[in-house]
């Protein structure tokens, strides 16, 4: 049961992160604008981060499916989620009126809110569990 649950969780997380990376990969200029609107990074880093982030999501998501690479993939995914959560929390405190850009770049579809923090917290917990747990013998 535990092994099946772990498999489902890993497949779910890998699919979720690959799904999340696709809009960013296809429209890097739009994603760069989303990153810029958080006003957290120096100008010189915005485009580089916008280009690198979706590929990191894909590579780490795929790593989650291979036992030897799983902990490293989970480390990246939970780290990225942690950074995104911190960015959203800071933006909420600063009162920024912006889209999350987490799963879609369509304007107005993903306004930041407390829901994003709760969801990311749950995803971090799931990623750590799926990445480091071993099925009971």
């Amino acid at each position: 049961m535990n092994a099946r649950l772990l498999l489902v969780a890993r497949l779910f997380l890998a699919g979720l992160f690959i799904y999340a990376s696709l809009p960013k990969l296809l429209a890097p200029q739009d994603f760069a604008l989303v990153v810029f609107r958080y006003h957290l990074l120096p100008d010189g880093l915005i485009n580089t981060v916008a280009l690198l982030l979706p590929w990191l999501e894909i590579c780490a998501a795929l790593a989650l499916l291979f036992p030897a690479w799983r902990p490293a993939g989970a480390l990246w995914l939970s780290g990225l989620l942690g950074l995104a959560t911190a960015a959203i929390a800071i933006s909420l405190v600063r009162g920024l009126d912006i889209d999350c850009g987490c799963f879609t770049l369509q304007p107005g579809r993903s306004h930041i809110g407390l829901w994003n923090l709760v969801r990311n917290g749950a995803l971090i917990a799931l990623t750590l569990w799926a990445g480091w747990s071993k099925p009971a013998p």
């Binding site: 890097p28 810029f36 485009n47 916008a50 280009l51 590929w55 780490a60």
Partner: peptide
């Protein structure tokens, strides 16, 4: 392995950006 994932992602993103019709400059005029 975490460093290898980062390296692979960096190479992939640089290659894809280079292949784009309109590559995104690494430094934008934000």
């Amino acid at each position: 392995r975490a460093a290898a994932i980062l390296l692979f992602a960096a190479v992939s993103c640089a290659a894809l950006n280079w292949l784009r019709r309109e590559p995104l400059p690494l430094r934008g005029e934000w």
